[in-house]
Design a binder for these strands. Sequence first.
DNA 1: GTTTCTCATATCGTATGCAATAGTGATGAA
DNA 2: TTCATCACTATTGCATACGATATGAGAAAC
Lengths: 235, 235
Amino acid sequence: MKERHAPVLRAQSVYRALRRAIIEQALKPGMKLPEDSIGEQLGVSRTLVREAFGRLAVEGLVELKPNRGASVAYPTLEEARDVFDVRRSLERLVAESLAGRLTAAQAAELEAHVRQEEQAHGQDGPESIRLAGEFHIRLAEMTGNALLLRYVQEVSSRCSLILAIYGRPHSSECAVSEHRQLIDALRAGDAARAADLMDHHLRAVVTRALLTPRIERDIRDVLAPYALSEGLTPS
Amino acid sequence: MKERHAPVLRAQSVYRALRRAIIEQALKPGMKLPEDSIGEQLGVSRTLVREAFGRLAVEGLVELKPNRGASVAYPTLEEARDVFDVRRSLERLVAESLAGRLTAAQAAELEAHVRQEEQAHGQDGPESIRLAGEFHIRLAEMTGNALLLRYVQEVSSRCSLILAIYGRPHSSECAVSEHRQLIDALRAGDAARAADLMDHHLRAVVTRALLTPRIERDIRDVLAPYALSEGLTPS
DNA sequence: GTTTCTCATATCGTATGCAATAGTGATGAA
DNA sequence: TTCATCACTATTGCATACGATATGAGAAAC
């Protein structure tokens, strides 16, 4: 029997590369994404880059304007609120699904994760942010619900973008203690309490982190208030 | 000022055409989707068909196997359960968001919609099914939450697929009376009751409609149990 | 007669090419 | 000087082309 290496389609690789680059803010919100320079950079043709753009657009990480190309999405504050609303709803479901159903191994893994978070808590590096996000992803994985996982991953990605734009510079978004409490509720099998903890936790993330715009996306948006104050009327 | 026809990108058109064809079951679950013949049929090149496939795959309407092409998704019963779980969670959010916030015009529109459903209730045509699905979409639209709308549309599409496979032939999936009750709760501003009504309504849809597989997708799946019962081991 | 090998065909994965569209700067008229 | 017009360029939208992979048929071997 021959070893069956999954072909690892390069289109997939391009997609993942861009996704990571956006989430890690190597590509900043609003940044233009020309097909050929990106293809050149990644060593593939525009075809594959376009394919990746399509998927990323569906997921709300890039914006795709006809004949004007792609750019890293720049969610408005309103969209941000929408995303967080949906996220709370989805993660409530995660909590309810998991309450009383965690295996010992799963509980142990989560606790190990939280300990990691505690360790990384001092340094406010990207490590801390990544870990906090991963905790939620791991929870979603444990539900065994593939669709729920996909949606949680999607809203998490978008939250990364949102926090990049509107978040406080150095707020570690997830309080480790809240994660710990959540695990306790899940072990205890208290679905209602787990769901509420998750809900409050995510609300807390918003109030802790969400603030004011910090990156300029488009000259127009930046200048609009100045124009107004001078009585100029942008077309 | 020149008349500015939106370019109506043809990729978009291909996507929508395929999507509708799948949802309306012109393309049945499990059916193979060769790029060439479909492109030919729609009058576009494979490039655009592939682009559409990518999006549809993300949304779970088609399955994409490397080097083996695309086929209309054939969700398992387990996936079906997952989809409905997520759907209930999302539509609870819809109900909560809308409770006490419906404008008079919106309420009137919903009621008009329900009246249409009542009229179509007699004939068990696709009209009745379409209307029932549309009710939920309209509700999601009214929340003003674009992400929530997208997700509800997505789970609705997948539910169409699922019901095509596992649904009873002539169960009108949504009881009109349940829609009416829901509207009442929304008008009354009773968020908790609205959410619970929605939840029960969707649970009822599942129990009313969900049944046993009716379409065979792959010889393998059909034969697997026979093989097992004979002690054969499919590779 | 069955099994395996080989080759032909169909289809996919990706790159490239061409036409079309917006942005940009230059030129000219008021 | 200011505004409108017009090429020019950059970049996209889409089609086509070519190599790669899988599937099926027929031949060869057992």
